[in-house]
Write a protein that binds this DNA or RNA. Structure first.
Lengths: 212, 212
DNA sequence: GAAGTAAGTTACTTGAAAGTAAGTTTGAGT
DNA sequence: ACTCAAACTTACTTTCAAGTAACTTACTTC
């Protein structure tokens, strides 16, 4: 039952690794029970260390949340920047969606925390809203490029915004369905998801007055 | 600056009225700052009374949340029961959707609290998810009625189930969109929801081999 | 107009979580 | 094999919110 580490049963970790672990664990606990319902002792215990370690690395409880926010947000922005290189709008939509869904599933906990940190006020909420805005903005921009050249950009974006949410919601619910329904093949799941996506894209195009 | 009340500047309210007020105020504060970040003293002060009043009416802090949940949930179930009287499946689906949107407008704060209570564990989360499950079930039954008479019910329900999830997932995400996007009219929300619904219904019908 | 009860208060106890000071272990370099 | 810093702990203080006991005020009803 040895943990990792340079040698023996040493539980010590270099700072960078411990920080990463603490952030991961904190994200999961904050997502599961809420920020205020999770104590620093809880987080520390789940990491196998004690509270003062967290304070020495992150300063305070809001400081821990802030660090989580910055790290996750920066990763997302990096990914979105890569997507921007894809020239074709529809290909970019699919790739971006894929990226967002992948991120949502790989980092569900972090994103739940960020989304719920956005409510309320204070500098953290501002920062969180900034990242969310970036995410939504990227989706909107991409979807809006399906509009005909004649349509003003701002109008196209506004028209398209509810569909961005609906798409992500449907995708997330689809996974939940897959988890709750026994005996469904992956192929079936993928096929269904794909049909839903096609239908949504068709809908968006029609709404933007593009002949399909 | 007289408040209401039988006579003079009396701030006393009969129990039913005070309970309703407390629930309303608590819903708003829980929605704004989160359940754990809101103290009973805060709620009491915002109501113009003191803490022991809330304890005498609701027993505990979880008790207050539970009461909020039950009241809002019961109202929803009542509404759904009324929908069951509509014979035509498609009309029933539309009426149900409209009901959800109406509730969302009238009780924004309560629904925010319920949606966030669904995450996490504990009896309250179970209860909240129970209301959601009831919704999904109702939707499933109704969607399955779109199937041709020859198709066995169990098969129809199974075929339709991913769409029930997707539809409600999209609706949930749509709610989030509405909650996060200022200045959207109700007409606009309904229209968008209706278009998404149209697309989903067409998809479902095709999947059930019904000619549109 | 006295009595009873519902609405409300003050003032407390308790428990838990944020934050900290001062000390101990361990490993890496010279 | 010594030293020094980084990783880590124990053992506190402080603060704040949940929950309660005992008391007061006002409305209703006969």
């Amino acid at each position: 039952m040895g943990e990792e580490g340079p040698r023996n049963g040493s539980r010590r970790l270099p700072r960078a690794a411990r920080e990463a672990q603490i952030l991961q664990v904190a994200a999961e606990m904050f997502a599961a029970q809420g920020f205020h319902a999770t104590s620093m002792d809880d987080v520390a215990a789940a990491c196998g260390v004690t509270k003062p370690m967290i304070y020495s690395y992150f300063g305070s409880k809001p400081g821990l949340l802030a660090a989580l926010l910055e790290r996750t947000g920066a990763e997302l922005l990096g990914g979105l920047a890569l997507m921007a290189a894809i020239p074709d709008p529809e290909a970019r939509i699919r790739a971006t969606l894929d990226l967002l869904i992948t991120r949502l599933y790989e980092q569900t906990a972090s994103w739940r925390v960020i989304l719920s940190a956005m409510r309320g006020d204070g500098p953290l909420a501002e920062r969180a809203r900034g990242y969310r805005a970036a995410l939504i903005h990227a989706m909107l921009i991409t979807l809006a490029e399906l509009a005909p050249p004649g349509l003003h950009r701002a109008i196209a974006r506004r028209r398209v915004s509810p569909y961005a949410y609906a798409l992500l919601g449907a995708a997330e619910a689809g996974s939940e369905w897959w988890l709750n329904t026994p005996g469904v093949s992956r192929v079936e799941t993928t096929a269904t998801a794909s049909r839903v996506l096609d239908a949504m894209l068709a809908l968006i195009r029609r709404d933007l007055d593009i002949p399909v």
